[in-house]
Nucleic acid binder design. Structure first.
Length: 155
DNA sequence: GCCAACGTTGGC
DNA sequence: GCCAACGTTGGC
């Protein structure tokens, strides 16, 4: 059982969008970074939990929890010429890019903001807090996961 | 809108 | 294989 943090810009797709999606489930597709591709393809397993992180907005932070409802599968948006994520290097026979399906577990009543996370020494090693980190998905340790859950309740 | 960080591309 | 140029991310 692994824990993850997954970024999305709420102006594109936020946690409220996921909540209003049928079965509260979406394909987490369009990732075009090889490091993240490897996590999607090889390391994210059904049942893993992930924080839904809002980036590129007024108050960046963790908005809630999702779970992996389907492990890595070829990202079909790469096959669609009309899709902005189209990549001719990827074919159904030899897929280059992968996606997972994510299902909403819960929305936090109050979000754990980036500012709040920075205030806690216990979280200082989190990849998301590291300067210049741009990976849209990062692994989260069990220790950090549970610490943030407590923050989410306490705030 | 600015800028740091960093991945990708392509010429050599 | 090197490295400059370029594009993207994302906090501020």
């Amino acid at each position: 059982m692994n824990y993850w943090l997954m970024k999305s810009e709420p102006s594109v797709f936020g946690i409220d969008d996921l909540a209003s999606t049928p079965r509260k489930t979406t394909a987490w597709d369009g990732v075009r970074n090889f490091q993240v591709r490897n996590m999607l393809r090889d390391q994210m397993h059904k049942g893993d939990l992930a924080f839904f992180y809002h980036s590129g907005c007024v108050e960046p932070g963790i908005a809630g929890i999702m779970k992996v409802s389907c492990a890595g599968h070829p990202d079909s948006t790469a096959f669609e010429p009309e899709n902005p994520h189209f990549d001719p290097r990827s074919t159904p026979a030899k897929p280059l890019w992968y996606a997972v399906d994510m299902t909403l577990v819960k929305r936090f009543k109050q979000r754990v903001t980036l500012t709040e996370m920075r205030r806690h020494a216990a979280l200082k090693d989190m990849l998301i807090l590291r300067r210049g980190n741009r990976l849209s998905i990062t692994p989260v340790t069990a220790k950090h996961w549970h610490y943030i859950l407590k923050l989410a309740v306490a705030i």
